[in-house]
Design a protein around this nucleic acid. Structure first.
Lengths: 388, 388
DNA sequence: TGACTCTACGCAAACGTATGCTATAATTCG
DNA sequence: CGAATTATAGCATACGTTTGCGTAGAGTCA
């Protein structure tokens, strides 16, 4: 309306002004509008645009100016360039997620939940794959590359990740770890309460009459170590037999559970219940049992841990412990943002969230002849050749 | 050591110079070294450091200088700040991944593979969750936020994603879509060859004697539409009966397959083979069948699609079509990088990769009395009340 | 009317890199 | 031996923001 607004450039930095006013006329097509474009069209300075757009309440602008800038910005579809913003303001609004294996459905569900919640908080997730880094050098460089993130979440135990953690800390980046067995001092860790979960699960199995329990671990990861410890403690507390051959360590996936169960079934002295360190392992174990013609849960009970969606659709549906993914994500993100904002780890650096026992059909009463010594299922075909 | 270094700020541009030389002495602890720090210690200019570090072969530097700079850089653990680099060079080395549902194991495996390969190419993935955006406005702003990425990969069909795609294109970003049924003209699409896959699968089922086939879809996504079309075409080509009640559309997950199979089993006229649009659906269908006491594959055959890892560990192990995740990722990434580098989509904007039929134990010969009209399994308990 | 206080905004300096242009010394060439 | 060429490296600027500081103009008060 008022042509007067288009005051000609001022003396000194005339060149720049002119540059600006020429840009005002037509922004380079194809690339997004900048604050200067908005400033030119609104007849204000670029810094004013920045201040108004960032909603800085400590600065006062006339309602007229504010309206005008906002309107132009909306028309141009302007939004601040996050890169430039990050360079100046040190905040990228990016959170690094370092994870061992996304293919694990439990981690996939966790990533999904975290990323949804992060978005609601205005953050994006960038993926770091630990799996892809065989040696330390690569892993280090990877961590270096994540340094354009405001903070990092490490999911699960990575083997030999001390170095990675130290790097992140050295870079002054906020760090929260999740789903790792033993918390390191000074590092914030959010995890499921493995103790409570295993306790509930084992009591359920015990109440069904089982006393001959096997445990299938999936590698030496911290969470699995803890669950194993709880398992052994429970055996001890209840004065159940402890057979080293019933403690099997395989890989952390279906095939690991499958192999482990085959070993278990091949033994002369069989357990009546098999506690798998997680759902995937349980799934493999179940497959091995069914394939060998062993009925579940009539002849042997199987349990999982994590509570991934598809455990409902195994046959029989798996008894498991459901991790409170939602709550864990919420807490981890809240604490991470606090750290990013300058907060400190504080005294309580280990936060445990209680899981929920989900009883389904893979667990049942202990079979009758279970007390016969030396293996209750000597009649099983698969075992005949082992008996001699 | 030298207190002299702590000089108070100077007036004009001398301050900058002095600032630089003071920085040379000791970098601010806690934050990473910059090219200037390296330059100071190596006695060269920042631009020289930049050029040597970026390995620009068109610039010649003496071997002495190059060695010295490299050495200092290594000692300081310097690596260029990606943010600053991105601001200047327009390359963030970040690839956006927009995906409907990471919890789907197939997509999880795909994401895993893509992210591993991307890392090898020097790129990181940032996650965009379509699932978390119920309305268009949010989705738009999401896409805007991804603009600090060099390129975008869209995985699977998002409902109403025309807008999102247009936004990405408007932003001049490279775009490759994967796993979507119908390719849009001008947009590069990498997908499995659904035609070949369905053909192989259906021929396998036909060769087992089946002619009464059902299809379970999981929503109206493009890939599913294509598979459904192939299914119907096959029925037509082979002059098999087509019963609309055998074409079921449920949700794209285990529960969808479960519900669908329940509907199928409740019908007086049952199919002898059920073709599920993907593995998850097949898994649910299998669970429903087993729960209803229907033996698989003796009484009914079930097939999946995708070839996710855990299909091997269902009981019975699932016959399915394995998508060539590795090849698809490789191609998609290669084309995306080409696009980022300034290449054009070209004529062939749809790239199809041939999948592999995986025959396992969920498919078997058609049951004997299959030719009795009006339902071959009238003896099934579950069906008694439907017969009247 | 001058000093002073607000209000409302602009100026310009970072942030750390890449890069076009320029400057110097060494070398070659006519 | 002067001039042209080459090898080597520095200067200065741009990228698009945020933000400390400065200031013009309007109003207030003595």
């Amino acid at each position: 309306m008022h042509k007067i607004l288009l005051v000609p450039p001022l003396p000194t930095t005339a060149a720049r002004m002119d540059n600006r006013s020429s840009k005002k006329a037509r922004k380079n097509k194809g690339s997004r509008p900048t604050a200067r474009d908005v400033a030119g069209l609104a007849g204000v300075s670029q810094s004013t645009v920045s201040r108004i757009l960032s909603g800085d309440t400590s600065e006062f602008f006339s309602e007229k100016t504010r309206k005008r800038v906002l309107k132009v910005a909306a028309e141009l579809g302007y939004s601040p360039n996050p890169i430039a913003r990050a360079l100046r303001g040190k905040h990228t609004h990016l959170i690094g997620l370092i994870i061992r294996n996304i293919s694990d459905p439990f981690f996939a569900e966790l990533v999904s939940e975290i990323s949804i919640q992060a978005r609601e908080l205005g953050y994006q997730m960038v993926l770091g794959h630990a799996q892809s880094e065989p040696d330390q050098v690569l892993r280090m460089s990877h961590v270096l590359d994540t340094r354009h993130t405001d903070g990092v979440i490490i999911l699960g135990d990575l083997e030999d990740d001390k170095r990675a953690i130290q790097d992140i800390l050295d870079g002054n980046r906020a760090l929260v770890t999740m789903c790792r067995g033993q918390a390191q001092p000074g590092i914030l860790t959010v995890n499921v309460d493995n103790h409570a979960g295993m306790q509930d699960l084992l009591e359920h199995v015990r109440d069904l009459g089982h006393s001959r329990l096997a445990f299938i671990q999936g590698g030496g990861m911290g969470d699995f170590q803890v669950r194993r410890k709880e398992f052994i403690q429970f055996l001890d507390d209840n004065e159940f037999d402890f057979d080293p051959a019933w403690l099997i360590n395989e890989t952390d996936d279906c095939s690991g559970g499958y192999c482990a169960m085959q070993q278990l079934l091949g033994q002369p002295h069989r357990p009546t219940a098999v506690i798998a360190a997680d759902d995937l392992i349980a799934m493999g174990a179940l497959a091995a049992a069914l394939e060998a013609g062993v009925r579940v849960p009539e002849e042997i009970s199987i349990t999982g841990f994590d509570g991934i969606e598809m455990t409902r659709y195994m046959t029989p549906a798996l008894t498991t412990v459901r991790q409170p993914i939602d709550a864990m994500s919420r807490i981890a993100l809240a604490r991470l943002l606090d750290l990013i904002g300058g907060g400190s780890v504080g005294d309580q650096n280990l936060i445990l969230v209680r899981p929920e026992l989900v009883v389904r059909h893979s667990t049942g009463p202990v079979p009758m002849m279970t007390h016969s010594p030396g293996g209750g299922f000597a009649d099983q075909a698969i075992q005949a050749d082992q008996q001699v």
